[in-house]
Amino acid sequence: MPEQAPRPPEVDASLYLHPQTLARLGSLELRAKMIVEGFASGQHRSPYKGSSVEFAQHRPYVAGDDLRHLDWKVYGRTDKLHLKQHQQETHLDLVLLADASGSMMYGSRSFEDASGEGVKASIDGRAAWSKFDHATALAAAMAYITIQQGDRVGLGIFAEQIISIIRRSSSSATWRQIVGALATHPVNPAHAGRKASLVRVIDQTLAKVTNRCLVVLLSDLFMDIEEFREGLARLKHAGHDLIVFQVLDRREETFDFTDAAPFVGLEGEDALRVDPRSLRKAYLEVMAGHTSEVQKACLGLGFDFQRVCTHDWLGPPLAAYVARRNAMIKRGKFG
């Protein structure tokens, strides 16, 4: 029996963009929380007043303002100097940050069940649908939608630091690059056993991004809460917006093991031989406490937080998220 040739990344991307998922997301518009600066015109409103066709407002002139923006007609009628400001249409710059640390390698769901196409294993032979698989599927879906809207998308895959990066672009070639990177960049054994260092990753990301972006963080957030707060604070300070997707496996949420077994950490932790039933309650308390802290940190800085379970389809959480974003924009929160 001839060996089946590996499928190209474009084809594999369809695994992530399951028809059911795309069917639900195709009619939705992704609206950014913030209007970021951009080069191409789009449907996104910019918070910056500049040269545009849609008038926004007048404001008194202050020393140092560009004289080109003075509304001479107002000056002629009122003898006062006012600047004429316009609502500028901008592009959305989306930066996807996908966590590829060791803990993201865990998955209790079979690949066959998650893919929905009868594929029994991943390209690299894994039979389980890991959190990384789920996060990259979600990232690909967001990138696809974003590029369809003509916005720019960039990608960063990180563990304890940025492993690979794709510059922002709205071209279809960028989409292929992103999908290829996500599909061919599973958790590398070389990076397994390393804990994600968010502060370092944020610093590396900020060094590459000069304009304000919408950053999407896809991670299980199994990191020190203080470091997580520090990373978020730096993003906030730089003026970026952030959507946090905490990707968890269902077993991590329920810890429904019944048989005693040695548990081996994926990030170099000591093995623990324990009866899981005796630890379940305490584990769930610790887990809930950590998630709560993460959520508080996000909301406290005005960022969005969404928990995603690997056993759920990609569509429902994305749809719920986008619907809530639209509602917030319509209320003029960022107008």
Binding site: G102, M104, Y106, F222, V264, G265, E269, L272, L279, Y283
Partner: peptide, 24 residues
């Protein structure tokens, strides 16, 4: 005979174990 179970959320399991160790 038990096969080891790879576990991602090991840091939380270890925290829980440290809390429950004496009682267990």
């Amino acid at each position: 005979r038990r096969r080891p179970v790879p576990w991602g959320a090991m840091q939380f399991l270890l925290q829980a174990y440290r809390k429950q160790r004496r009682r267990m």
